[in-house]
Design a protein around this nucleic acid. Structure first.
Length: 797
DNA sequence: GTGGGATCGGTTTTT
DNA sequence: CCGATCCCAC
């Protein structure tokens, strides 16, 4: 027996060694064999394309539409198309290519460069937002903005809207900032500005039906305030571009004639506003190429519409259409599953995706009892596939519907020592400390920025409180001037002496930064801002774990500024669409606001990727896990009320499925925690829509699905893993704890306080109503009683 | 004006 | 379970 065991162990070791060897050999070959694309593909780089791809890539005169199914080599066609255009003698700066992420643009640029040389660097290529932000930066003065305009992210926009709602004395329960913001955004994306909005009877009636007749007024005030602050929100970057082209003929003329070729990737996800801009730009040369797939349209909530495809055919009647239907990515099983799913949608263009690839494995459907178990099962499966199928970490993706689902997978992967990387969620630039420093920088560049002003005028605390701010806002509104303007001319307004002094000090400080703008290196300036505002000191004094990481985040932000200003060999913040180097602080701030989640990745690391299905668009992985396939989650409970919404969820599922090359695993949990309590979950209807004979069900209590008394016992694959580390604290007590807690806490006990660190409980007076206790805590080494109520953890000896 | 504790309310997806 | 907001004591 022992002998057999020893053999197994040996075999396992052999496999490990072998797979290690193979993986490294592959990495070695990939990394070290030079990959000169033109030679690799033969005589001409065009040889590498199949028949329909070749036609799509080389028909470069006149309007073109390419309908490209998932995995059909769409990116390749686009790349070769641009390379082909360049080879016909067109200048790179006469080409505009709009992609979905900056990363996609950068990758494509690199590939084109490999074929065509470094000239490709000056292509106008990037996301709609970043390309037009760049255009606005040089043209903004023609529509009354400065070129240093701030870009408001959605938090800034919502804050401003919330303030406006309050100032207008409206009920902020009926007027929720997020829904008002959504309405305004929807309007902007359909080319309706604030003057136009009240005239749109349909919109106004909808608002009234929801009991929000004042949305038009809020929109108007919002537009006014943004303008006064010298700020544009995400939608403004497009709307103002459109306005610019509409109202300034010489600008329109200049760009219309410049761009001989315009290309749009992911056309199904562009909205009316974006389409209108591009249509204008392409009007002279009419060389416009759109690439898309209606089945992968997943941004209708953002205003994207299938109508664009129909409009396109109407607006350009002599359009040439190409269809790429052969899938080179996935197994037959996966392609069949995708086709079966999408066939449930009524609204779609007819097409059939097919593949020559192998049949491949059946699709696994795993049922787990809880979200935590779901995490463990997926981690176990990855561990197993890594060994058995020789898939490297980077060959795996875990895709979920909402960012909040990542937690259980993180924990499980960490336990098995599987390296992973999460995209999305709270991004680096959304963190409080980063936003704080950024606000100072924004204010330095554009002092009228109202959101930045409000954010930092009293951070760190300098005695400018609610009352002073309220006055400031009132004076600003009365005089239609920015907050900064009022603060800068404080003598003209009645303020108490203390407030006047504090505000003046603040203004003087910001002005001292501004004085350095042109003279000082942007990095040094930012570092000085961090220091002299007291942000750095404040964070440095915070010795908690979070405080430490905040401090590091500030350092990281400073580093990214340095990288931007001193472009190194590889720098992800370099504007992808930059022809001339604009490396001012203002340019940095604008670029950073437009980074997408996908841009954060360097993509080359060997990690399992965790992301939402939305973020996975355009990517592919050997083995894909689509998790949380439950009713009300995927499809989202908010998107099952109309056929259109449900069909978008189904397209989302379609996108998720088609990311997989070889293996596809679907999971759902029978229950999951929601707001701290267990919630029971139905399996998603999408599982039922799959070809059932292609599925391998794991962990199913079949009776629950078919009504028959047939139980399948579920067993998790046995994988030895290190015993979980004993938690240092077994019970966390806090003000408002349950009656059980005081029994755990005793006088004289050593405890750790969340914020003040280690100490002792010196008293436990006054149990009010058996639910609350007053805890007296004394910090170690200090005589003074620090506080009465405390959030504490017990330290076990 | 400041800071801490209690209380309430809320879940999509992204530039 | 989280964060925003309210409320109260200094």
């Amino acid at each position: 027996m022992a002998c057999v065991l020893a053999h197994c162990v040996q075999d396992l070791t052999m496999i490990k060694i072998l797979s290690f060897f193979l993986t490294n050999l592959c990495a070695f070959l990939m990394g070290y064999i030079p990959f000169p694309i033109p030679y690799f593909y033969g005589m001409s780089f065009l040889d590498a394309l199949n028949e329909p791809q070749l036609k799509a890539a080389t028909s470069i005169q006149g309007p073109v539409m390419i309908i490209a199914g998932p995995g059909s080599g769409k990116t390749r066609v686009l790349t070769f198309r641009i390379a082909h255009i360049l080879s016909q003698g067109v200048d790179p700066f006469e080409i505009m290519a709009l992609t979905f992420t900056n990363k996609a643009a950068r990758e494509m640029k690199n590939r084109i460069e490999a074929i065509q040389g470094t000239g490709a660097r000056s292509l106008w290529m990037g996301t709609f937002h970043s390309v037009f932000a760049r255009m606005l930066r040089s043209e903004a003065t023609k529509i009354g903005y400065t070129s240093n305009f701030t870009i408001y992210d959605s938090d800034d926009s919502k804050n401003l809207i919330k303030n406006i709602i309050r100032e207008m004395g409206l009920n902020d329960k009926t007027y929720k900032a997020s829904s008002v913001h959504y309405r305004i955004s929807l309007a902007k994306n359909n080319l309706i500005n604030h003057q136009e909005y009240p005239l749109q009877t349909e919109l106004v009636q909808e608002d009234e039906a929801y009991g929000r007749p004042k949305v038009a007024d809020i929109y108007k005030e919002y537009a006014k305030r943004c303008f006064r602050a010298g700020a544009m929100d995400f939608d403004d970057l497009l709307l103002k571009t459109h306005e610019l082209l509409e109202s300034v003929p010489e600008v329109l003329y200049k760009y219309q004639h410049r761009f001989k070729h315009v290309l749009i990737d992911e056309f199904q996800d562009t909205n009316f506003l974006q389409y209108s801009i591009v249509k204008k730009l392409a009007d002279v040369h009419q060389n416009i190429c759109v690439v898309g797939d209606d089945a992968q349209s997943i941004y209708a909530f953002r205003g994207a519409s299938i109508l664009n495809i129909l409009n396109y055919e109407r607006d350009f009647p002599d359009v040439q259409t190409f269809r790429l239907e052969q899938n080179y990515r996935s197994t037959k099983t996966i392609v069949a599953a995708a086709n079966t799913i999408i066939a449930n949608n009524k609204q779609q263009l007819a097409k059939k995706i097919w593949t020559d690839n192998a049949d491949g494995d059946r699709i696994k459907v795993i049922r787990s009892m809880s979200d935590n178990e779901e995490g463990r099962l997926v981690a176990d499966a990855i561990f197993e596939q890594r060994m058995r199928d020789h898939i490297s970490n980077s060959g795996f993706a875990i895709l979920y519907r909402t960012n909040a689902q990542s937690r259980s997978f993180e924990e499980a992967l960490r336990r098995l020592n599987i390296p992973y990387r999460i995209y999305g969620g709270i991004s680096f630039y959304q963190r409080k400390e980063v936003k704080d420093l950024m606000a100072y920088l924004k204010l330095t560049v554009n002092p009228n920025d109202e959101e930045a002003f409000k954010r930092v005028v009293n951070y760190p605390a300098r005695g400018i409180g609610k009352t002073t701010m309220e006055k400031l806002i009132v004076f600003a509104a009365d005089n239609d001037r920015s907050l900064w303007d009022i603060a800068d001319n404080i003598a003209l307004f009645p303020f108490p002496a203390a407030a006047r002094k504090n505000l003046t000090e603040f203004v003087t400080m910001i002005k001292s930064f501004q004085a350095q703008l042109g003279k000082m290196h942007a990095y040094d300036l930012a570092a000085q801002v961090a220091k002299s505002t007291g942000i750095l000191k404040e964070l440095y004094n915070d010795q908690s774990v979070e405080g430490l990481s905040r401090y590091e985040n500030i350092q990281e932000l400073l580093n990214s500024i340095r990288e931007f200003v001193d472009p190194g060999e590889y720098n992800q913040l370099v504007p992808v669409d930059a022809t001339e180097a604009d490396r001012s602080l203002a340019a940095y701030l604008q670029q950073v606001s437009l980074l997408t989640d996908a841009d954060q990745q360097d993509g080359t690391d060997d990690t399992v990727k965790l992301m939402t299905v939305h973020a996975a668009k355009g990517l592919e992985f050997e083995s894909v896990f689509i998790v949380g396939l439950e009713e009300n989650l995927f499809p989202s409970g908010l998107s099952v009320n109309s056929r259109e919404e449900l069909e978008e969820e189904r397209r989302l599922f379609y996108v998720a499925i088609t990311r997989a090359e070889k293996k596809l695993t679907l999971t759902h949990a029978a229950s999951r925690y929601k707001f701290g309590s267990l919630d029971y979950c139905e399996p998603s209807r999408f599982i039922d829509e799959l070809p059932q004979d292609q599925l391998e069900m794991v962990g199913y209590n079949k009776a629950a699905r078919s009504g028959r008394e047939e139980y399948v016992t579920y067993q998790a694959p046995k994988i030895t893993r290190p015993a979980p580390a004993q938690p240092a604290f077994t019970h966390q007590a806090s003000a408002g704890f349950s009656p059980a807690a005081p029994n755990e806490l005793q006088e004289g006990m050593d405890v750790e306080h969340q914020k003040f660190g280690f100490g002792k409980i010196v008293g436990m007076e006054g149990n009010n109503d058996g639910k609350m206790a007053t805890i007296q805590f004394q910090k170690a080494g200090q005589k003074k009683l620090l506080l009465k109520f405390a959030k504490l953890s017990i330290v076990r000896n």
